[in-house]
Design a protein around this nucleic acid. Sequence first.
DNA 1: TATTTTATCTACATTTATGGATAAATAAGA
DNA 2: TCTTATTTATCCATAAATGTAGATAAAATA
Lengths: 112, 112
Amino acid sequence: MKGTYLGEFEELVLLSVGVLQQEAYGLAIKKELEDQTQRKVSISAVHASCNRLEEKGYLTSHFGEKTQKRGGRRKKIYAVSLPGQKALQRAQHIRKSLWDRLPPNAFTLDFA
Amino acid sequence: MKGTYLGEFEELVLLSVGVLQQEAYGLAIKKELEDQTQRKVSISAVHASCNRLEEKGYLTSHFGEKTQKRGGRRKKIYAVSLPGQKALQRAQHIRKSLWDRLPPNAFTLDFA
DNA sequence: TATTTTATCTACATTTATGGATAAATAAGA
DNA sequence: TCTTATTTATCCATAAATGTAGATAAAATA
C-alpha cells in the first residue's frame, strides 16, 4: 500500500494547483494551503511535494514569462495532468464508497 | 504540518471502523479496506494505524466477548471517538473548500 | 494437547515534511 | 555598466511518520 496512494498533503497540493491555475507556483500554493487549512505550511514541503507529484506524473510544469513588475526568478507554474485528475477522482471515490456504507447514526456528529 | 493531519490511510481506517461498527477489529478492517480500495493491505499496517489513531485519541477500543463458535483471542473492537469524527469532518471540510474554489473547467474530467 | 484466531512486538525501509543554505533570474538604481 | 535588492527555485541533511514483514504470544475451542 505504501506509495500507491495520494497522500493527504499531496491531494491538497493537487487541488490547490487546480484552484490557482496560471498562478500555481510555489509560494502561491503555500499561501492557498495555509488559507484553506489554517496551518503553517513550509515552502520546502510545497516544493518537495510538487517535485514528487511531477515525478509521479500527476503534475506538469513550465516556467512563466518574465513580468515587467518584479524582480526575481521565473515562476515555475504547475498544472494538474490527466493522471493527476484521475488520482483525485479515485481518492474521492474510495472515500465516498466508504461514506455511503456508513450505517445511519454511525456517528454522533452530523456530517452535512 | 507533519503529524498534524489525518493521513490518507488513517482516514480510510477511521471510515472503515465507522462502517463496521461492532465488527470493527483488525482483520475485518483489513478486508473492508481491501474491498473498497481494491488493493492489498497488510494486517500490520492496520494494527499499526489503529494503535496510532488510538494514541491520538481518534479511536477507542474494548475487547469483545468470547463467542461460542470460534477459538482465537478476543477481538479488539474499535470505535471512532468524537475527536475522530471531528477530524474526519475537518478533512472533508478542507477538501470541500478547495473543491468549491476550483474554477469551472479547471479540469478536463467531469467530477460528478 | 493441538488447532485456530487474533493481537502484539520488533526491526526496518520508505516516504514525507522541514529548515536552512545557496543559487539563479530579474529589475532598479547609481 | 555595475551593484544591489528582490523573488523564486533548488539542494541537502535530517527528523518524523508510515507501511511492512516476520516472529511471537495469548486466548479460545475441540
